[in-house]
Nucleic acid binder design. Structure first.
Lengths: 100, 100
DNA sequence: CGCTTATATACGCTCTAAGTTATAAAACTG
DNA sequence: CAGTTTTATAACTTAGAGCGTATATAAGCG
């Protein structure tokens, strides 16, 4: 499993969104996905860990999860060269609007 | 299947890369993935079409595929808010290096 | 027209991701 | 210590992705 597959799963994107706000315990993250059971969320967290998107630190009985800065950057690096496509597209549109 | 899943598959990322250079016929794209059979590539192209990442136009017997500008933008839009994470991280690193 | 070329679809197979229930492991609590 | 809380893992099931072979479809060509 790589970063791209990890991020392809909607529940995992949800978890990433929450961790972007602030660090959270596994339990908080479980509560944030009421449609899933605790083991299901735990496994999603494992995936995010394994691809380097999050970090965990123990806090007594709890595990505190944190978003890892460089994880998503790998996707951004891949997408960067393509950015000119919609930038060019937008420029063309702007020009069209300005010239009419 | 959504854009994220579409892009999670390595062969499809390969196809996107080629189409970023220039438009290509289905046949050219099939040749670009010698490990796969023609039907396999055809199905990948179908997926890319269905999620709006590419466009097709007929040219007689051939089909010419082209990258669609706004397809990947949806991923970029999702990732944009997180960009501050590694930008901040980089700033912190730079500062650290400058201050020693 | 038959024949070939180019592309898409149908079908069946295999492998794995994602979910559940049940349980383990480890730390807190009275 | 016994019981509870918190998180992770095990075992199993199911759904679907991705592949290959075979076939359909449609356009070019002699």
């Amino acid at each position: 499993m790589d970063v791209f597959e990890a991020v392809a799963e909607p529940n995992r994107r949800h978890l990433i969104g929450l961790l972007a706000e602030r660090d959270r315990t596994a339990g908080e993250l479980v509560d944030s996905l009421p449609a899933l059971t605790q083991p299901a969320v735990s496994r999603h967290l494992r995936v995010l860990r394994e691809v380097g998107l999050v970090d965990v630190r123990p806090d007594g009985q709890r595990r505190i999860y944190a978003l890892k800065p460089d994880g998503l950057q790998r996707i951004d690096t891949w997408i960067a060269p393509y950015r000119r496509f919609w930038r060019d597209h937008l420029d063309a549109l702007q020009q069209h609007l300005e010239n009419r």
